[in-house]
Computed example of a mutant assay.
Amino acid sequence: MSEILKVEGLSAGYGPLRVLHDLDLVIHAGERVGIVGLNGHGKTTLFYAIAGLTGWQRGSIELAGKQIGRTRSQGPGRYTHQIVRQGLAIMPQGDEIFNGLTVEEHLDSGAFTPEAWRTRKERKERVLDIFEPLRKLMKMPVGRLSGGERRMVSIGRGLMTDARLYLADEPSLGLAPKIGLAVMEALLKIDLKGSAMFIAEQNVALLEGKVDRIIGMHAGKLKGEASAASRLG
């Protein structure tokens, strides 16, 4: 089974603050892996480090066998566009969408590679098969949508290109339990084929029994396998 993500000795932070401490992690093709822990313990920072968005980082990060980590101390985002083009799809925490654009315009914005743009009509259909409630909302500005619908748009945009690794950061954050469950179930329907998915969540119960592994995170360190019965500090 091929390695989609390989992290070795990763430390990262912002300014003088060190958030991640010498992390090692491997995710294989076809895997769905959850990472759980309280806010402020490093889940989002790990995703930012993979995307090259931390203030500084050291260590190795490989995406499908290609080094994307880079030891650097310069501003965040310098190499993010290159990392995305190598096969990273980011579904950020919260909405992170533009209120004045329509649902369709948001989905189209996710088809940023030439191949994805040429086939955007078929790709939108695949997204709408997963998030059926969006089908009747395509011409509506996203600022008029409910929280759950906005989250579907954000995730759907991340599915519009061919990614090797999908990063879904707190997909249920701020949603009513029933809606959060529906969004998570739709996310887990995605056919990964030769890709992988990494999901950050606080609610272990939303992931348990639905992903291949769940890893705990506490104070910037990975804690190994986690379950709903574990204490994540």
Rank of each mutant, 00 (worst) to 15 (best):
R118M: 03
I61T: 09
M197S: 08
P177A: 14
E62I: 01
Q67C: 01
M138H: 02
I179V: 15
N99A: 13
R70W: 07
L53M: 15
I214S: 02
F131E: 10
E125S: 12
G209Q: 07
L188K: 11
Q202H: 11
A228I: 10
P92I: 11
E96V: 13
M217R: 01
V36F: 02
P141I: 04
N39E: 12
L25H: 06
R157K: 13
H41W: 06
A49Y: 08
D95K: 15
V7K: 00
M217H: 02
L10S: 07
D22Y: 06
Q86N: 12
L134I: 01
G147N: 08
K221T: 15
K210L: 04
V183F: 03
I68N: 00
E122C: 00
G148V: 06
V153G: 07
Q93V: 07
D95V: 08
L101C: 05
G13E: 05
G94V: 07
A89M: 01
M152Y: 08
I179E: 12
T54S: 11
I61H: 02
Q74L: 04
G40D: 06
E62H: 14
G59E: 10
I68A: 04
L53K: 04
G147F: 10
G147W: 11
N99K: 09
G216E: 06
K193V: 02
L145H: 11
S227D: 10
R144K: 12
V153M: 07
Q86H: 13
G110H: 02
S195W: 10
S227V: 00
M217E: 01
T44V: 06
E149M: 09
K178A: 14
I83S: 01
L222D: 04
A229T: 13
E3Y: 00
R231K: 12
G209T: 11
A163L: 02
R126C: 03
G94F: 05
G233L: 09
I155V: 14
V204C: 01
G77H: 04
A228V: 14
Y14W: 14
L167T: 02
Q93T: 06
A29G: 14
I130F: 10
D95N: 13
R213W: 04
A196I: 09
M184W: 06
R231P: 00
M91K: 06
M160F: 10
L173R: 04
G55W: 13
L23Y: 02
R144C: 09
V211K: 06
A182T: 12
K139C: 00
E208A: 13
L187V: 04
N39R: 02
R144I: 07
G15R: 05
F198G: 05
L206K: 05
A168N: 05
K193H: 14
G75A: 15
P16T: 03
E105P: 05
A163M: 12
V153W: 09
K136A: 15
G220S: 08
G143L: 00
R164F: 06
W117H: 13
N203K: 13
F131I: 10
R58N: 13
H41K: 03
G52V: 12
I199G: 00
L175N: 10
K223L: 15
G42D: 00
K139T: 06
S154F: 09
G100D: 14
V19I: 15
S195N: 12
G52A: 10
Q67G: 00
E225L: 11
R120L: 07
D108H: 03
V211I: 05
E125D: 14
A51T: 02
R85D: 12
S60I: 11
L165D: 01
R32I: 03
K43Y: 09
T113Y: 03
P177G: 10
A205T: 08
Q82E: 15
